[in-house]
């Protein structure tokens, strides 16, 4: 069981009340394992983003548990949940959410600074992550001056800066051309994925399924199947 990074059980999440109630996630159970790339796919509105939020400490489920390191994250105080997001989870948001008024390297340093590290040390460390994602030479530019693919890399550098166990990508290739998208996934698989980390990717883009170890398909808030992905090397 030690290789489980996260175990979700019977998650339910609905929005609104009465007639207006939409159940976005209806009783989803699954786990994510260290060293794997888990893809979540399914039609629009099937509850993928909602599910990601439930397991990453962003959105509280109405029912169910999310066990990480033997504890249900949703039984913790909100400060502890914030710490969980900061220390255990790395997010690459769909539209990146980079800070246009900060330089690229400052953007990457944000999680380190939130962890109360010294400013200069955080910047130095952020520089290393920029080097890993290959855009160190853009460090002092504002992110708006960067191309879409480069911004994606900045977002990845920021996500890994906090040494997360679970790395979450929402539609990582949605705003990239096919070539760049594949390059990024290839890069992530080779350089970011370790056997102490699991990467969960939500995507519509079947061109990148080849990088998945497992693919979980959702429909209408439910999991309707698991497949081995193209990347499974067993």
């Amino acid at each position: 069981m030690a290789e489980l990074a996260m175990q979700a059980t019977a998650l339910v999440k609905w929005f609104g009340e009465g007639d207006a109630r939409t159940v976005a996630v209806q009783g989803v159970s699954f786990d994510a394992r260290f060293g794997e790339m888990l893809f979540i796919e399914g039609p629009s509105g099937s509850g993928k983003t909602t599910l990601l939020s439930l397991i990453s400490g962003i959105l509280r489920p109405n029912e169910g548990t999310v066990m990480v390191e033997g504890r249900d994250i949703w039984s913790m105080t909100s400060d502890r949940i914030a710490d969980f997001r900061l220390n255990k989870v790395g997010f690459v948001f769909q539209d990146y959410h980079l800070f246009p008024r900060l330089t690229t390297v400052e953007n990457v340093a944000i999680p380190l600074i939130l962890k109360k590290n010294d400013w200069d040390k955080s910047i130095d460390e952020a520089m290393e992550y920029l080097e890993i994602v290959g855009i160190k030479d853009r460090a002092l530019l504002p992110p708006v001056k960067l191309s879409g693919g480069e911004q994606q890399r900045v977002a990845i550098a920021r996500a890994i800066a906090s040494h997360p166990d679970i790395l979450i990508f929402d539609e990582p290739t949605a705003s990239l051309d096919g070539e760049t998208g594949r390059k990024i996934l290839d890069f992530v698989k080779k350089n970011i994925l370790t056997d102490k980390r699991c990467i969960i990717v939500v995507t519509h883009d079947n061109r990148i399924f080849e990088y998945a170890d497992r693919i979980m398909t959702m429909e209408d808030g439910r999991v309707i199947g698991f497949e081995q992905g193209g990347g499974r090397e067993e």
Binding site: I58, S78, D79, A82, D83, F84, R85, L86, N87, V89, F91, F93, H97, F99, I110, P111, L114, R158, S162
Partner: peptide
């Protein structure tokens, strides 16, 4: 607002 929201998502506490 979006920046503050992103900070919150990344793990900043309301207090901060």
């Amino acid at each position: 607002l979006e920046r503050f929201g992103a900070l919150k998502a990344i793990g900043a506490k309301g207090r901060e």
